[in-house]
Amino acid sequence: MKLEVGTIRSNMDGFNRIARIAKETRNMLLDSIDLDFSGCRFFEANMVAPLYVVIARLRNELNDVSIQNVSSEIERILKKNHFFTVFNMASIPDNNQTTLPFKIFKLHAGEQFYDYLESYMKGRGIPRMTEALTKRFRQSLVEIFLNASIHSDSASGIFACGQFFPQKHRFDFTIADAGIGIRENVRRYTGNKKVSSCSAINWALIEGNTTKTGRQPGGLGLKLIKDFIRMNEGKLQIVSRFGYYEFSASGDAIEKMDHDFPGTSVNIEINTQDTNSYCLKTELSSDDIF
């Protein structure tokens, strides 16, 4: 079966195109799928993480997935960020060091994920940011990774990729999993089998809400990330099953996608020129906290 990939950017259209590939191939087993890039004019490198969600699910059903008609420009981008190694193609050096390469992590590899961020963000061209911003960015990415570790139940692991766009002073990082989705987690937790993907995302975004069990507080991670993104004037996108949520300086919006994305993908885009200190003017003491 041959399937058009099309142009993929970090937006609803891009996620819908990826979800459409999942839909068209849903029940395939021991089959062959060619991803046809002839209609792909641009591929935002971080979006390989959600694309791999679909590929991982297909390979899990022992399908053979290959690529064809990739333009030389897109081939260069996707070799530079190591994505094409999943098709047994060699990667090429990232001379400008604008990439955090595509990587597949085991579900509970939080520390390896942190090491990956350390090694690719430290002392490289990616990008010169204040210490406070770097710390909040990494903290946010680790929170997202841990959310996927705890909640996704993804048999194929967690997929990550980042791309710096120097002209725009923007850095996009995407963490995706081929798991059960936020909807299924919320359905199981609340016992309400009709919760929609969009309602489930809205539920997960409320401070204190968590599907974690065991009488422990939680549900802060996404709220902290939203607060950070608000101050940074960046962007947060959460895609899970049919739900597409986007938060930016212009507000937040949630929409139902045309197709079912078979997992969860969180993309954060930060403004790398941000000089906020991310700290209150008056320092808190131990007595102020408890």
Partner: peptide
């Protein structure tokens, strides 16, 4: 984290009950 924990243990079920689901479409 501490403020969230205080709220949570003051009323662990409150977080769940506070959620009124809007539109639940079939998917």
């Amino acid at each position: 984290v501490v403020d969230n924990a205080k709220k949570y243990y003051a009323n662990p079920k409150g977080y769940d009950a506070a959620w009124q689901d809007g539109e639940n479409e079939d998917e």
